[in-house]
Design a protein around this nucleic acid. Structure first.
Length: 881
RNA sequence: GGGCGGUUAGCUCAGCGGUAGAGCGCCUCGUUUACACCGAGGAUGUCGGGGGUUCGAAUCCCUCAUCGCCCACCA
């Protein structure tokens, strides 16, 4: 006997072990089956599961389980990412707690520390994935810094370098003064900040008392100014072009140039130019051959290029000092409050400084061309489609990708420098040495570039490096390109685009056919969940309290396309109740000795009740299949919820009660078999979303002899013929209810006392059955206080006739006549309004001319219904008096 | 400054040209033998405002408001 409620935690652990042990997660490269592949976006190796993971992995697992059941050879490739900056920061923080720094430790020791931390915490995320019920092929788990994946990274780097698509360049980069590394444009977040706009007066050379006024939000950068720009058409400044200003505090002579970059309407119309510390100024400086003066060190403190009093000052301290000094000199024209966007590093939170440095770049522009074409021609499609615009927008304006990071944790760049700075890029040190020897004609000492690659460089290779590339493995041949990539929009640029670039370059084919972009999970107020906001909902906590299946079902039900998910915990509770409901349906079946009958043919049911549920199930199965194929997880979940609760439990099981209590033994047997069969189909259909609960129910139902659902075949019930003729899905039920409702309206007549009612339930011999099954019928009729008229005496009983029925309904005491009158009056008003609306529509010539015939027919039917309803209500009201 | 998305029942959200929906919450009622994590019944909406297209608009178009997100080099 099943327990009264479902116990998720015990079940989860037990079945997960059984699944994994059974080999059900594994792919079969030699199988004749069609492969189905999803690359799991590798989470940070030392991270832990958050709600975004829960969503994305649940959706992927649903797809994988569904296609596995459909007979595909599924590969869900798992793994973790070394997450360069993020991981390094965590370990540095740990060191700081012990008053140490990575520099005090040295590179080698530090990297050892990170590996140790990885060993310690690296299992967390995969354990949590298991708790979520995820079913990837764990045997194939990879880490981006595994030796073979690292080799792939080196090979790609070397090839791109030799093809001229990776190069070294000195440019302005986004410098993170806290982490001491360059970061990519994508890793910079701009935050609106309230600051000030200072107007400084720069004296004009050779013109006593004349000034040019420039505005700045970053006064400290003036120490690096090497020019002032004005717009060529700006009358106010035309006479100054070609002259020089004298940079206050420094005394440098800087040219005043005409450049269209200067906006006459902004600030004073004249703009100071600091080529080494501003992306725009860099361009202006280049056009006018202005000097580049770097005034910051790697901490963004002032270096020796500035006058002595400012050296060594932090940039923000320097800012105050400079403003004060300028004020003292009377060179501050005015100060205005100003709101500006300040760039911050997305990891460190530090204010990013544009800084001139040598970095490695990847020619993303060239690599982007094929992926753009692939999306244009539909070789890769985005779902929902509107993300393609975002993709195009970014890809068509793509900038060189800075791939070097001044970190220690990651793939060290395979480039070695000769004594004269000559670069040798090779896959190994030996090859570099050989190349150097060939170049210099003798062995020389080489120094390896200390930088590592951007984390996304290695994850860009993920779809093929995890399959064995560069070796031509059978897995690579079989599983690439993959079927679908499932991810949030936040990494379209970081990852999706780059996988497409690298996939094309090295495999000659798109890495995935479909990119399904799901929503982001936010809290109830729509805020992004973050530790600092304290609004994190922990998926593991929800799993603990509601069960994994409830969380999975919730996420699926909320995963509507194109919209963020605002997660309310009450939804999880609601779906936990749903799980319990299904569980109890299984208990009911068990109590009524509903067992699977081998060879049961759902198409051959005699009882209409059973023919009806078979049709309704077929309809549901078809909806579920269509929804999953279209990535409409919420529709799949909704269809299953509705069928399970609203159809199977509320109606079918209730109807089956009089049958089970009746004397039609053949009907009973058929209903038992049908109940068990429907339940069996249902747990199959629900399995991808609720894997644990369904396994538990299936285990009971099949007596443990049916294997596990995870390896079961998807049921073919969607293709079953639906006996529409007999009941047209729910028509039978609807007709029953409406008959009873009609009777109820008529009942409000004291003179109806003599009425007898009859409803024929399959297999039940009424009225005798009524005595035994009054409660069940009362429920199914959604009426209160039903008793056999004969028992209670002939009072206010109703005659309900459905197919020559024999159900007596006595509603004595169930009706409050005043209430009923009010209700009927309202109903009459509504009915009249409704009828009026329809009649106006039907009387409208244009409607009659233009609406589709079936629409008109529908309206006619509705009209008839409304007329009948109105007449009925009026009659009932009249009889009420 | 560009772009995208939201605005539907008290809350969280579906629906996206032809009768306004779900879950949760709320109010009544129910000691019914699957389930109180239940059942029956009920209340609650000018579908953000304003225009337009259409026989017909929550649904399509325009516009305004508002909230949120993404991108962007404006001193």
């Amino acid at each position: 006997m099943l327990d009264k409620t479902f116990n998720p935690s015990e079940t989860q652990a037990r079945f997960y072990r059984a699944w994994e042990a059974s080999g059900a997660f594994e792919c079969h490269p030699d199988s004749p089956a069609l492969p189905y592949t999803i690359m799991m976006p590798p989470p940070n190796v030392t991270g832990s599961l958050h709600m975004g993971h829960a969503l994305t992995f649940t959706l992927q697992d649903i797809l994988i389980r569904y296609h596995r059941m459909r007979g595909r050879d599924t590969l869900w490739q798992p793994g973790t990412d070394h997450a360069g900056i993020a991981t390094q920061m965590v370990v540095e923080r740990q060191l700081a707690e012990r008053q140490m720094t990575r520099r005090s430790l040295g590179r080698e020791k530090f990297v050892e520390q990170v590996w140790a931390w990885k060993a310690e915490s690296g299992g967390t995320i995969t354990r949590q994935l298991r708790a979520l019920g995820a079913s990837p092929d764990w045997r194939r788990e990879r880490f981006t810094m595994d030796e073979d994946l690292s080799a792939a990274v080196r090979k790609v780097f070397v090839r791109l370098y030799k093809d001229g698509l990776i190069y070294r360049d000195k440019r302005l980069v986004n410098w993170d003064p806290k982490l001491h590394t360059a970061i990519s444009d994508l890793e910079v977040e701009s935050h609106e900040t309230k600051g000030q706009l200072w107007y400084f007066k720069y004296p004009i050379e050779g013109a006593e008392g004349e000034f040019v006024v420039v505005a700045t939000t970053r006064p400290e950068t003036m120490l690096g100014d090497t020019g002032v720009a004005v717009h060529p058409d700006d009358e106010r400044y035309r006479h100054l072009v070609g002259k020089h200003a004298i940079l206050p505090l420094v005394g440098r002579r800087i040219p005043i140039v005409a450049d269209e970059y200067a906006d006459p309407t902004a600030g004073s119309g004249a703009v100071k130019i600091t080529p080494a510390h501003d992306f725009n100024d860099f361009q202006v400086g280049r056009r006018h051959k202005l000097e580049l003066i770097n005034i910051f060190d790697q901490d963004a403190a002032l270096n020796d290029a500035v006058p002595e009093p400012y050296r060594g000052l932090d940039r923000f301290v320097a800012r105050k000092r400079i403003v004060a000094d300028m004020e003292a000199l009377g060179l501050v024209a005015k100060v205005e409050p100003h709101t500006l966007m300040v760039p911050h590093g997305d990891r460190s939170g530090a204010v990013i400084e544009p800084w001139l440095s040598d970095q490695w770049y990847c020619d993303a522009k060239t690599l982007a061309q094929e992926p753009i074409k692939a999306v244009e021609t539909g070789r890769t499609v985005f779902v929902p489609k509107n993300w393609e615009n975002t993709f195009f927008e970014w890809m068509r304006n793509i900038q060189p990708w800075n791939i070097s990071r001044q970190l220690w944790w990651g793939h060290q760049i395979p480039a070695w420098y000769g004594p004269d700075g000559k670069i040798f890029v090779e896959e190994t040190e030996a090859e570099a040495a050989a190349a150097a020897k060939a170049h210099y004609g003798k062995s020389v000492v080489l120094n390896r570039d200390p930088d590592v690659l951007d984390t996304w460089f290695s994850s860009a290779l993920w779809p093929f490096s995890t399959l064995g590339w560069p070796e031509p493995t059978k897995e690579l041949k079989r599983y690439y390109p993959t079927d679908v990539l499932v991810t949030g929009f936040d990494i379209i640029f970081f990852w999706v685009a780059r996988m497409m670039m690298m996939g094309h370059r090295f495999m000659g084919e798109v890495p995935f056919r479909t990119v399904y972009i799901h929503a982001l999970v936010r809290d109830e107020r729509g805020q992004k969940m973050s530790k600092s906001k304290g609004n994190i909902i922990d998926p593991l906590d929800l799993i603990e309290r509601y069960g994994c299946d409830s969380l999975r079902f919730t996420l699926a039900a909320l995963a509507a396309q194109g919209r963020d998910i605002k997660l309310a915990e009450s939804r999880v509770g609601g779906y936990r109740n749903f799980a319990t409901k299904l569980w109890n349906a299984a208990r009911f079946a068990e109590m009524n000795r509903c067992a699977l009958v081998p060879g049961f043919d759902p198409g051959a049911c005699r009882l209409r009740l059973n023919r009806w549920i078979v049709g309704a199930l077929a309809e549901t199965a078809a909806r579920v299949e269509r929804a999953i194929e279209e990535y409409k997880f919420n529709e799949a979940a909704g269809a299953l919820y509705q069928f399970t609760w609203g159809t199977f439990c509320d109606w079918y099981l209730e109807f089956s009660k009089p049958v089970f209590g009746g004397e039609d033994e053949a009907g009973k047997a058929e209903t038992r078999a049908a109940t068990a069969w429907v339940l069996a189909q249902l747990v199959h259909l629900l399995h991808p979303i609720m894997p644990f609960l369904t396994e538990a129910v299936w285990e009971h139902l099949s007596g443990g002899k049916g294997g596990m659902l995870i390896s079961a075949a998807w049921p073919g019930c969607a293709a079953l013929p639906r006996d529409a003729a007999a009941m047209g899905e729910l028509d039978w039920v609807v007709s029953l209810i409406s008959a009873i409702r009609t009777a109820r309206a008529e009942l409000n007549v004291p003179a109806a006392a003599e009425l007898a009612a009859a409803v024929r339930i399959e297999g039940a011999e009424v009225p005798d059955r009524l005595r035994a099954h009054g409660e069940a019928i009362r429920r199914l009729a959604r009426l209160k206080a039903i008793e056999h008229a004969a028992e209670a005496g002939p009072r206010r009983a109703v005659q309900v006739v459905v197919e020559g029925a024999t159900l007596f309904l006595d509603l004595a005491g169930a009706i409050d006549f005043d209430k009923e009158r009010t209700r009927l009056e309202k109903e009459a008003k509504d009915a009249a309004g409704e009828l009026d609306k329809i009649q106006r529509k039907l009387g409208n010539e244009q409607f009659m001319a233009k609406a589709k015939p079936e629409v008109i027919e529908e309206q006619r039917e509705r009209q008839a219904e409304a007329q009948a309803a109105l007449a009925r209500v009026k009659a009932a009201l009249a009889r009420l008096g």
